[in-house]
Design a protein around this nucleic acid. Structure first.
Lengths: 128, 128
DNA sequence: ATATAATAAGACTAATAAGGTCATGTAAGT
DNA sequence: ACTTACATGACCTTATTAGTCTTATTATAT
């Protein structure tokens, strides 16, 4: 019920890595993959989701790479996870779907809310 | 990252069903499966985990079935989910495993804690 | 005692989702 | 132009979840 995907983990580690190298040059995905020991092609795919969600931005071509779009302290753990895994909703329970007054739905919503709060409170500067 | 399994959902619905029939007779799994529109064999398996974890108890043989081990108000949503899915731990991140000082671990722990709290606060009597 | 009705447990299969790879395209710097 | 690097989507592989079936075991009723 509560497990981070590899994609989410790689995204976090990748962003932390970029943040840690506070250089003006963009960082190559190949370098990140190698240093973090994650599959490069897969990381490319994960990063593309971060780009689409405005968390990092890419520079193509020679001397290209990735750079953070905002300061590390303005990127929350929540931002990264939802960018990669999509919005956190598990409310596809049978009862929810078939009745507007499913008694479990408020419980899920509350649990999700509390969890999201924590993930929003922590940013990349904290965990780098 | 946050999704209830079918097993978890069936378990919840099954327990709620038993609670709703406040009779002294044990309730057959076949009846529950039929009324809840859930695969019977699968529900048997799910229920066996609830038995092992002391949430319901079983009466075998003719006129057998399942009965709650405690009052509905003493069975939390958390109890049922962890009985069926095992303990909620997602802390198998690469960094956690390879370093005792993984900066993400406290975040996961806190998020998990907050979520568990909510699930513990709600019981079967609430959601029945 | 025996037949019957129920759960127990685990092997097995099917379906779905996650993880990973690859080929082709596009953009930018030299 | 050529090289280097990201973009994208198709594809394959592996792992997990969901579901089924078979063979016990247990208890009740007759």
């Amino acid at each position: 019920m509560f497990k981070l995907s590899r994609a989410g983990e790689y995204a976090l580690r990748g962003v932390v890595y970029i943040a840690s190298k506070n250089v003006d040059d963009a960082v190559h995905v190949a370098e990140i993959a190698k240093c973090q020991n994650v599959p490069e092609y897969f990381l490319v795919k994960v990063f593309s989701r971060l780009v689409r969600n405005g968390i990092i931005h890419s520079i193509r071509g020679n001397k290209g790479g990735f750079r953070l779009s905002k300061k590390p302290e303005n990127i929350s753990v929540y931002d990264i996870i939802t960018a990669v895994e999509g919005p956190l909703n598990l409310n596809d329970c049978f009862i929810c779907k078939n009745s507007s007054k499913c008694k479990m739905k408020p419980v899920w919503d509350e649990a999700k809310e509390k969890m999201m709060e924590v993930l929003k409170q922590h940013n990349i500067a904290d965990v780098a």
